[in-house]
Design a protein around this nucleic acid. Structure first.
Ligand SMILES: [Mn+2]
Ligand SMILES: [Mn+2]
Length: 645
DNA sequence: GGGGTAC
DNA sequence: GTACCCCAACGCCTA
DNA sequence: TAGGCG
């Protein structure tokens, strides 16, 4: 009797068991006391499991249905281990000792002369309990519950790294050989992105590729092996993958924690540039994907966005001896949390996003009011950072951040800060810049959580400038930045006219990009770039495009270095494309009255007569993001090679 | 903004 | 307790 | 190499 794949059924009358990762078998004891094991397709596999045969502690004839499993050190069935036994017809004693197996009995079809086939599931389970099978050496009767609903059991299975559940109708009969609707199996499948780090050639008629070696990055930017995938490909996909992988050939294994020898045989290593998506059922004890199936390439993903998360950050990776830290998913701050912020006095501790953050001078005016609106206090800035985090964090995560701080308000001098403050909470992610000169800043803040954004708001870190490159490859820009800097006499209409010229140029080149207003007077255009080119490459490219744009409106543009020789005209600033030089992040506040923010735009909005460079503020940006969304977000991490000019 | 020191 | 001091960037351009 | 620039 086989289970039908499906979804957890609703309603009463079901029992739930776990789905075990082993091989199905019927165990029969005949009237002479002889034991026989029969596989799913009717083969006699008795000789392969003398240890199970020896464990049978009854003379009564009976037939049990169950699963042969091999347990890992955590006591969890591990199909990978069982494979060492499955194909061995006469296992030597040493192998039996090294890979012990168990029989998980979950049904009984016959006891003595009495057939139980027509009995209900509940009655058969009762008979199974009466047999005392659980007391036999190497035998177990895994749980069947009628108390816990299938969805909850599925959660339990997920937490324990099990394959899924089987739900059985309590009144159902046993139907030999049939795939019945009264048994429903629900397999856990998880989708995740993976970085391709190598491949093996296919054997025989398989052709281009046999399997792919998969990985993901830890919080330190190291790539870890996550296993192989060798199924789920169309033939066309295999050919296409080979063409993409061939030019990425590398001499060295890209995985920081290595690859098991048996998976490294005949592997062609590649630069870890391609991202794909796989489905898998569970993780193995050493944090590798089990039952993974290829689902396709994700050219829209940056490899460094593919990080070890949740399940991987727990125990398994420890076996590689690697600390696992990953950017947290941005948390939406709850209304209760926001109310707690409003309830604080001048200072206090705000419990938000899983942290306790000390806040000071909450009613201090940081920004004067604008257009008759009240001034903006530090409490307002803190609230804004907390609420905008889901939109802002994607642009900050995985990058060092340079800050411009205004603790005495934006009417006073601010200062740049790159170094992580000495008394930063220990949960703030920091990064040591290995190429920093002695005497320069060594340790930078990496903003990877809502809590960090709140903490920075308390420091009056108003302008957040993420690096243009991502960790760990800080010499490879992920954006090419176009920066339209107005001069004293430049009108915003002139800025928009130039931005539209860039729009036409990029459109002509077939380059994807998105504009944003800076919140002060300018406009920037951010062009996503697949890591690979150097800053010199992106700077040169932006310079060429900018010089071409400048030739169309020479009366508006100056290329003079000294501001006093520019005649008030604007500068097309391509020089910002260099390591450790930055532009203000989307949605970062700017030091000006009313707390304006930098806001991403659709290209069409460059034609909107109501557009102003400082139109949105910390008070209005979230409405805008809720109604219009973030037009730049689809470009984040998008793969793009800049065309030759 | 926050830590340290002098008063 | 409080007054006061100090500190909080950097890469590249041009002359 | 100082000072300008962003
Ligand atoms: Mn600018
Ligand atoms: Mn600039």
């Amino acid at each position: 009797m086989l289970a039908t794949p499906g979804r957890p059924p609703a309603g009463q009358g079901w029992a739930v068991e776990f789905k075990w990762d082993g091989v199905r078998a019927l165990l029969g004891v005949d009237s002479a006391g002889g034991v026989h094991l029969t596989s799913r397709n009717g083969n006699d596999v008795t000789l392969g499991y003398p240890d199970l045969v020896a464990g049978v502690a009854t003379d009564r004839p009976l037939v049990l249905d169950g699963e042969i499993v091999a347990l890992d050190e955590a006591g969890r069935p591990d199909f990978g281990l069982l494979q060492n036994r499955m194909h061995v017809r006469h296992p030597p004693a040493a192998l039996q000792a090294e890979v012990p197996v168990q029989f998980y009995a979950f049904d009984v079809l016959r006891v003595g002369e009495r057939s139980l086939l027509r009995e209900t599931y509940d009655d058969r389970r009762a008979a199974l309990d009466d047999l005392g099978v659980a007391g036999w050496p190497r035998f177990a009767v895994p749980p069947s519950t009628t108390e816990v609903a299938p969805p909850q059991m599925l959660d339990v299975a997920r937490e324990h790294g099990l394959e899924g559940i089987v739900v059985k109708r309590r009144t159902s009969r046993y139907e030999p050989g049939r795939r019945a609707a009264s048994w429903i199996k629900i397999a856990l499948f998880t989708t995740r992105e993976v970085v391709l780090g190598g491949w093996t050639p296919g054997e025989g008629s398989r052709g281009a590729i046999g399997s792919l070696l998969l990985g993901a990055y830890d919080g330190e930017g190291r790539l870890h092996y996550l296993g192989n995938v060798g199924t789920g490909f169309t033939q066309a996909a295999l050919r296409a993958l080979r063409e993409l992988l061939e030019p990425l050939r590398a001499d060295d294994d890209p995985f920081a924690s290595g690859v098991p020898r048996e998976h490294a045989r005949g592997v062609r290593w590649v630069e870890p540039r391609l991202v794909g998506e796989v489905e898998y059922r569970t993780l193995t004890h050493d944090a590798r994907l089990r039952h993974s199936v290829w689902r396709g390439l994700r050219p829209d993903r940056d490899p460094h966005e593919v990080v070890l998360d949740g399940a991987f950050a727990r125990a398994p990776l420890a076996s590689y001896g690697v600390p696992a830290a990953a950017p947290e998913a941005p948390r939406i701050v709850t209304p209760d949390e926001l109310a707690a912020l409003d309830a604080l006095r001048r200072k206090g501790v705000w419990e938000v996003a899983g942290r306790e953050i000390a806040l000071t001078n909450l009613d201090k005016v940081i920004f004067p009011g604008r257009d008759g609106a009240p001034p903006v206090t530090k409490r307002d800035l803190v609230r804004y950072h907390a609420r905008v985090a889901p939109h802002l964090l994607p642009y900050l995560q995985g990058r060092p951040v340079n800050m411009q701080r205004f603790p005495d308000g934006v009417t006073k001098q601010g200062f740049w800060q790159k170094e992580i403050p000495v008394h930063a909470p220990d949960w703030v992610t920091r990064w040591r810049y290995p190429d920093a000169d002695p005497g320069d800043v060594q340790d930078y803040v990496v903003v990877d959580s809502t809590a960090t954004l709140v903490w920075l708001a308390n420091l009056a870190a108003i302008e957040l400038h993420p690096w243009t490159s991502k960790l760990p490859d800080v010499h490879s820009p992920t954006w090419a930045l176009i920066d339209i800097d107005p001069g004293p006499t430049t009108s915003f209409d002139d800025v928009l006219a130039v931005a539209r010229l860039y729009r036409a140029a990029l459109d002509h080149l077939g380059v994807a990009a998105a504009p944003k207003v800076t919140g002060k007077r300018g406009v920037q255009i951010w062009v996503p770039v697949t890591p690979g080119p150097t800053f010199a490459d992106t700077r040169g490219w932006v310079e060429k495009v900018s010089k071409a744009v400048g030739r169309m409106v020479p009366e508006l543009i100056s290329w003079e270095w000294h501001t006093d020789r520019r005649g008030g005209r604007m500068r097309l600033d391509y020089t910002q494309n260099v390591i450790n030089k930055t532009l203000v992040a989307p949605f970062s506040a700017r030091p000006a009255a009313g707390a304006p923010v930098s806001m991403t735009l659709t290209w069409d909005e460059l034609d909107d007569p109501d557009l102003r460079p400082d139109r949105w503020t910390v008070a209005t940006a979230l409405d805008r993001l809720e109604t219009v969304g973030d037009p730049m977000l689809p470009l984040l991490g998008r793969a793009q090679t800049l065309p030759n000019l």
